[in-house]
Simulated assay, not measured.
Amino acid sequence: MAEQTIEVEQRGAVAWVWLNRPELHNALNESLIRELTLVLRGLSDDPAYRVIVLAGRGRSFCAGADIESMKQQGAASATANRDSARELADLFHAIASSRKPTIARVQGAAIGGGLGLVSACDIAIAAVDAKFAASEVRLGLIPATIGPYVVRAIGTRWARRLFQTAERLTAAQAEKIGLVHEAVEAGGLDERVDAIVSDLLMGAPLAQTAAKDLIDAVVDRPISAELIEYTAERIAVVRAQDEAKEGLSAFLEKRKARWVPAQS
């Protein structure tokens, strides 16, 4: 029987996506990478879901690459190695480009590829005992496929240090440098994630997707006449859409907008 590397749990409009290799600290192998990529792409387009929470069964979120997979990659051809690396890169892109808000719920180890998963999510909440590292250089490797997402999360200055030292960070240190948004007591991890989910469900789904696109469009660009015109055009288009009209009507009528779940 094939290993079920991913479990999807529906909690109302929220998909909890569980990495399911707890005995191996949810290490990434080819099966998990492929399955997770397919699941995330499907959820991104599924109207039944509003938010995606990425979590790990057992003691760790994700301890990085599976040892057996690493051995196989070391003996593989250049073409096979490239294909395998591209699949991993596609996974991180599937998270980062999701049309739905994504939250990383982190406990235990988030190392190597696990660090990439955290960085690719929109929001990251960690237990205070979580540990983070870009460990690749200690194996003679580089954090290539996770690199764009980690650098985007923590900036080039910290990336220069962590990519070369491969040192482990505590959750408090990860919060300080912007890798995670909050570090909370382990017993309160799910409660804090649920609170953020509740906040997300109050927002308009199309507006949230557009807001994500806006960030990608304006990041690192100078505030020029061109950018000013772009932002003016974006808000003008959004204002004319049905979702914006419903949001304004709900505000003026002092009621919840139609997209807010009944239990919120």
Rank of each mutant, 00 (worst) to 15 (best):
V150T: 08
V150E: 07
V151C: 06
R152N: 04
R152C: 03
R152D: 10
A153R: 11
A153I: 00
A153S: 02
A153K: 12
A153G: 02
A153F: 03
I154G: 09
I154K: 13
G155V: 05
T156N: 14
R157H: 10
W158Y: 15
W158F: 13
W158K: 13
A159W: 14
A159H: 09
A159P: 01
A159D: 01
R161P: 00
L162R: 14
F163T: 06
F163P: 02
F163W: 12
F163N: 08
F163I: 05
Q164R: 15
T165Q: 12
T165H: 12
A166F: 01
A166T: 11
E167N: 11
E167Y: 03
E167P: 01
R168A: 10
R168S: 14
T170I: 13
T170E: 13
T170A: 15
A171R: 03
A171K: 01
A172R: 02
Q173G: 11
Q173F: 05
Q173K: 09
Q173A: 15
A174N: 02
A174Q: 05
A174T: 00
A174K: 02
E175M: 10
E175F: 02
I177H: 12
I177Y: 06
G178N: 06
L179E: 09
L179A: 07
L179K: 07
L179S: 07
H181A: 07
H181T: 01
H181N: 12
E182N: 09
E182C: 08
E182D: 10
A183T: 00
A183K: 04
A183D: 03
A183H: 04
V184E: 02
V184L: 09
E185L: 11
E185S: 11
A186M: 08
A186V: 07
G187D: 05
G187M: 11
G187S: 08
L189N: 00
L189E: 05
L189Q: 03
D190R: 02
D190N: 09
E191D: 12
R192W: 01
V193C: 07
V193F: 10
D194K: 10
D194R: 08
A195G: 06
